[in-house]
Design a protein around this nucleic acid. Structure first.
Lengths: 159, 159
DNA sequence: CAAATACCTACTAAATCACTCGGTTAAATT
DNA sequence: AATTTAACCGAGTGATTTAGTAGGTATTTG
């Protein structure tokens, strides 16, 4: 799992689409203006999103983009994976000295972390983000506190 | 929190140091050969690590590097923060339209994730990695399974 | 037909990555 | 003292990524 600004741009744009696309398609020009992302860069991002079926484009006047699926069927991980290539963290994959050396130790570390992040982001849908914005204060803090407690639990178990 | 190959190189090198530095300093030339990282690149990484007190250099023949602290006092997060600049995920920080718009939603998402990753990596020390390697098979798999179960628990709780 | 919009290709300045090169100090060995 | 070993230092480099510009073509609406 790779975390870059590119992926964050894509999530932000998709969230804009989820929020403003309830009645009719949203143009990239609108998103560009709303989010301060250049039009051509958005086009590149949406080409990738389209190829993965996350958005659906409608040409011509009055056209724009729809979400490709329901907003609760699109996870943040889906979006990031669509625009950011999944780079392997390993280097000695298939090399000779990766059976017992130190490399394997860090490999399992990165693998664990990568999976951890993936699971975290797979569980958050665009709809969650939309609702999170509406409910805001109370519910959000509760969720955060619960997740926090879980992480601390994981910490003590691992130690 | 930024996750790049640079940080992974640094962790790998530090782990090499923790494993091989028990009796006397370890030269960068050794680490270079062991881990397949160029000497000059290691020098750059260790300049950053040294400035943060994570390693201590000894010049002259028989010299090399020691860990700056005990291996159970150095976390993976410490290492990554030393070599990877901490880039802010936000863009509209201090801008006018970040009070209630969509941007704030993604901001809290990235902040949560970033903190999540930081906590995860802050809890893993070099010593943990060394021990993980010695106990190997049995204990390692148990730990992983336990962590996995925890993560699944977190997922269901959040959902 | 004209306009709006998606869709597509190529190019670019800036930054980062991993590395090379060519040094200079400081300490141990001879 | 001379040599060697190693840390330490700075400049530069090709490859890649980032975020953007420019200039189109294709398709649909009015």
């Amino acid at each position: 799992m790779r975390l870059s600004t590119k992926g964050r741009y894509a999530v932000t744009a998709m969230l804009d689409l989820a929020l403003n696309g309830t009645q009719g398609p949203v143009t990239l020009a609108d998103i560009s203006e709303n989010q301060g992302i250049s039009l051509s860069y958005l086009e590149q991002l949406f080409a990738a999103l389209r190829s993965k079926g996350l958005v659906r484009g409608v040409r011509g006047p009055g056209g724009g983009y729809y979400l490709g699926r329901e907003s609760d069927e699109i996870s943040v991980a889906d979006i990031i994976c669509a625009v950011d290539e999944w780079v392997e963290f390993t280097r000695c994959k298939g090399r000779q000295n990766c059976q017992e050396g130190q490399r394997c130790l860090t490999h399992s570390l990165w693998d664990d972390l990568s999976q951890q992040i993936f699971i975290f982001l797979s569980d958050i849908t665009l709809n969650d983000l939309v609702e999170r914005g509406e409910v805001r204060e109370a519910a959000r803090r509760e969720k955060k506190a619960a997740a926090q407690a879980q992480v601390v639990g994981l910490k003590h178990q691992a130690a």
